[in-house]
Nucleic acid binder design. Structure first.
Length: 427
RNA sequence: GGAGAGGUGGCUGAGUGGUCGAAAGCGAACGACUCGAAAUCGUUUGAAGGGCAACCUUCCGUGGGUUCGAAUCCCACCCUCUCCGCCA
């Protein structure tokens, strides 16, 4: 959520920064609402102050021995009643304006960081670096061909269980998924992240805090009877882990990693990536999340991204880092690096991680602040999140990159202790 | 799901309808003492909004209500704990 003070003090900045994201907004109406709301607040609080004075007078008179029914007290009571009625009217109006203001502010995306390259579509994203040597030979299979051939999962029977875009992993496939989750969590824990296994049903306040609500309700699965939703990413429960908290400054940064299944409707993607593990309604992901001091969030972004990259490197998977341009940034992000893994069968790089710094955007929505022991007041923390990594897509990458001429798949050495072998489909 | 108890500041925990934003303690900060520290003593110490400021308003689970005045009384809801039931 954007800062109301920014709306008041520098609305042109909001307009121009949102324009960088390709968004045209006219804030004049909203500014007017904010201004009216402030005037009402002033009027109301002055009236309340008067009412409070009257209340005290009544109390003092009665304690001094005046009759509670006497004319003097009665006059004050009448005055108090009149004020009460006026306050009620103002208050209702004020609440209405406040609600309008908040609703609209919640619908604005984050402002892009200064460093974000300008652009009008994903075509303007900037490649920052490449790692590894991609296999280029012809005749390589795509991961879904390999998986089906080796019996790593069930496609059609999964439709029977749920519907399309759900997968049932079997045998070595299920085992590899589990191995990857453990491997990733161990790697991150060793770097100081606290492992978290959060609820994957989350309430509306949690989705609002991280930015999925109110605008993207149609992207999530919902349990209509309970004000609970299936989480689309661990970013949601992790943000709310400290929602409405004031953290001691010396505890920062707080760094968490969490494995969760993730659930997304993928509305509007019919016909795309219909085969294999790339685009599913339910997939597994290990997420990295930081709560940090505003001064350190830029450096933290680099570190978090490096931690995601370290997983790819340890798995010997070639990748590239892409910096998203202003037009391609997600709703809550101020700056984002996407990691794309090389899929030699498909002959393309595919997104496997997205690492974002959100500034105070989520912290303001979720009210997550920190306090310096020696100073008054609180400040909003900065939050960062990144996939470390999407597990299904990692499996796809391992299958395509590790495929051998005999049809088997060779796994990287780092996975052997987790998987219990170095080859799938040998013999 | 049924019965009971309870939700108060960073934490513990008092609170009679009227100077209650709230005693006390812990914790924290500063100062004194000390060569230094511990202990002790003193002072300070919640948040949000508005105002240049003095200061004003709001916040005792949430939302309503009664009252001139509500942490305190009434209603509804949410949550936590204990017992029972059910259950991996």
């Amino acid at each position: 959520m954007l800062d109301q003070r920014l709306l008041r003090d520098n609305p042109d900045l909001i307009t121009s920064e949102l324009a960088r994201r390709g968004l045209t907004v006219d804030l004049t109406g909203l500014q007017l609402v904010a201004q009216q709301e402030r005037q009402l607040e002033e009027q109301r609080s002055n009236l309340q102050a008067e009412g409070n004075r009257i209340g005290k007078q009544v109390g003092q008179l009665i304690q001094a021995g005046a009759s509670p029914k006497g004319p003097e007290v009665q006059a004050l009571r009448d005055q108090g009643n009149r004020i009460k009625q006026q306050v009620a009217v103002l208050e209702e109006e004020e609440k209405g304006l406040e609600q309008r203001l908040r609703d609209q502010l919640l619908a604005f995306p984050n402002l892009p960081a200064a460093a974000v390259p300008p652009g009008s579509s994903e075509a303007d994203n900037v490649e920052v670096k490449r790692w590894g040597s991609p296999r280029q030979e012809s005749g390589l299979q795509e991961h879904w061909q390999i998986g089906e051939r080796l019996g790593l999962w069930e496609t059609e029977r999964s439709v029977r269980i749920a519907q399309s875009r759900f997968i049932t992993l079997l045998g070595a496939g299920a085992r590899l998924e589990r191995a990857l989750i453990s491997f990733m969590l161990d790697q991150h824990s060793a770097r100081g992240y606290t492992e978290v296994l959060p609820p994957i049903l989350v309430n509306s306040a949690s989705l609002t805090g991280s930015g999925q609500l109110p605008k993207f309700a149609e992207e999530s699965f919902r349990c209509a009877d309970d004000d609970l939703w299936l989480t689309p990413t661990a970013e949601v429960p992790l943000t709310s882990l400290h929602r409405d908290e004031v953290l001691p400054a010396e505890q920062l940064p707080l760094r968490y990693c969490a494995y969760t299944p993730c659930f997304r409707r993928e509305a509007g993607s019919y016909g795309r990536d219909t085969r294999g593990l790339i685009r599913l309604h339910q997939f597994n992901k290990v997420e990295l999340y930081w709560f940090c001091h505003p001064d350190h969030s830029a450096a933290a972004h680099e570190q978090l991204t490096a931690h995601a990259e370290a997983i790819l490197e340890t798995l010997a998977l070639p990748y590239r880092r892409i910096e998203l341009c202003t037009a391609d940034l997600g709703f809550s992000a101020a700056r984002t690096f996407d990691l794309e893994v090389w899929l030699p069968g498909a002959g393309a790089y595919r997104e496997i991680s997205s690492c974002s710094v959100c500034g105070d955007f989520q912290a303001r929505r979720a009210s997550i602040r920190f306090k310096q022991a020696d100073s008054k007041g609180t400040q909003l923390v900065h939050t960062l999140n990144g996939s470390g990594l999407a597990v299904g897509r990692t499996m796809a990458a391992l299958l395509e990159n590790g495929q051998q001429s005999d049809g088997s798949v060779k796994l990287p050495a780092a996975l052997v202790p987790y998987f219990g072998g170095d080859t799938i489909g040998a013999g």
